[in-house]
Nucleic acid binder design. Structure first.
Lengths: 145, 145
DNA sequence: TGCTATGCTCGACGAAATGGACAAGACCAT
DNA sequence: ATGGTCTTGTCCATTTCGTCGAGCATAGCA
């Protein structure tokens, strides 16, 4: 499905998505038209979902991060889901099996702000919040193998 | 700290980090050297941590995702932290306040694989695993405001 | 053996990035 | 006010890069 060359290319792009085709093609030992074509196919196949930029939330003033587990009260599941989607401070959220229904990541500037955000959920769900102290594993890819 | 122009630029780059300087500069209404200079500064200030590529784990064969909460047994904290860092299937992990000490995201191909991975933690920590059913909020940025 | 698919290279041309010289505005101390 | 300087911008010439068309090599297969 993905050959070694594709994986090499992806590995390089993860570290620098703005590398020029030329430099990329030199690193992997192909001509730039072939690399260009491979990129096109990787995008087409949705292996590459997007080229994007990794921004430090702290640089935007969000010095604090929390992980929130959310268990909607009976009958509130869809309302809570919508509520979560409409809170832009929640930057990712998964719906999961188990007692908790949603697990999300929240960026905020102060405890007051956190309190305000959680209050909006409190009427419709039980929440359990853990403040992030550090990130032993930064976002990375699972093995390409 | 970040002016409106920077935020506009970041907003565009989040959606397409490989956009040409020229097109980017047209969209924001500056010349390309100035945009280039702004990018340089944004990288220098570490607002932009990296230009990267968003890859679908499913395209690499990881059809399943779980969120794992890990509570090391007494005295095992550092060993567990190292263990987590050395498990490449864990693609992000935070150290948090509260009963759980670590919360991580895990990509895997089969229940057997999940079982194997959790077994490696089981001797040194209690774990609590939630399988991801869907992702109501895909990775996004908190408000730039 | 010969047909076709795929995936590559090469070279040329137009497009884009870069670097240098310089201008406009904000701010400050004199 | 005057002049210095710092920041952020433009413009333009040069260099670098991406894309396109044409053509070649290999693998799979009737």
């Amino acid at each position: 499905m993905l050959d070694e060359m594709d994986k090499t290319i992806l590995g390089i792009l993860i570290e620098d998505a703005r590398i020029s085709l030329k430099e990329l093609s030199q690193k992997v030992g192909l001509s730039s038209p072939s690399v260009s074509e491979r990129l096109r196919r990787l995008e087409e196949k949705k292996v590459i979902r997007a080229f994007t930029v990794d921004i430090d939330p702290a640089a935007l003033g969000y010095n604090l991060t929390a992980i929130v587990r959310v268990r909607p009260l009976p009958g509130m599941l869809h309302i809570v889901e919508r509520l979560i989607q409409e809170m832009p401070e929640i930057t990712e959220c998964d719906k999961v099996t188990g007692d908790d229904c949603f697990i999300g990541k929240l960026h905020f500037r102060s405890m007051e702000q956190l309190d305000g955000l959680l209050d909006r959920l409190a009427e419709k769900a039980e929440t359990n919040t853990s403040i992030v102290k550090s990130s032993p594993v930064k976002r990375r890819l699972p093995p390409l193998g």
